[in-house]
Amino acid sequence: MNNIFAFYYSSIGKKVLMSLTGLFLIIFLTEHLVGNLLLFANDQGKMYEAYGDFLVSNPVIRFIEIFLFLGVLGHAILGVILWFKNRMTRPVKYKSFRLKDNATLASRTTIITGSVIGIFLYIHLKTFFIPSRFSAEKVSTYELVVKAFSNPWYDAFYLVALFLLGYHLRHGFQSAFQTLGLRNKTYTSFLDLLACIVWCLIPLGFAAIPIYFFFFHQAASTVIMGVH
């Protein structure tokens, strides 16, 4: 009974994997956000680019990157598998089912918010990650950022996706602790506080970037160019 496969095949095992990958991704998001704050340095992206170079050249980071991709894939695939499995437990649907009286919107929509985040991720990687990593000549990531965020449609999609990310985290963060058995009367209030930080601040922090670049940075760079 005590082997890893049995653990995976148990309902709780799958949920534990969801939680662990989810928490791992939250840690990544935090790091990603902190790094991206360098974009606000107003130094034409010098520090930001240096940070990017460090990430690309550091073998440890490259190693962790593999797990990051596995984590994203695992979290997504497992999420979809669980969703399908769970749908199948009720072949005859209720005529009337007022789940909304009993459960928060966030908890009922993780599959939707998660899917949108998936699409977002694809676009995000296509815009930034792929060119900066796989193109032949050296690409300035800072310029990629400036260029991408000058498009209002792109920014709007970004903001919607980040809002949904917040919603996803709102359920996901405390859910991960519940699944890992770490929620109990003593810690609940502390965890709820931490959860607020996670689901509010992370998406807000990310959202500040396109807003900044769209409204302020374009103007700022124009002024600088004028001086030249």
């Binding site: 309902s11 499995k85 789940l99 009993n102 459960a103 699944t179």
Partner: peptide, 18 residues
């Protein structure tokens, strides 16, 4: 108990607390 619960075909908990 969890093994039997899974065997019976109950779904996974998604922590929505309904």
């Amino acid at each position: 108990m969890v093994a039997q619960m899974d065997k019976e075909g109950f779904g996974n908990c998604s922590n929505n607390y309904a």
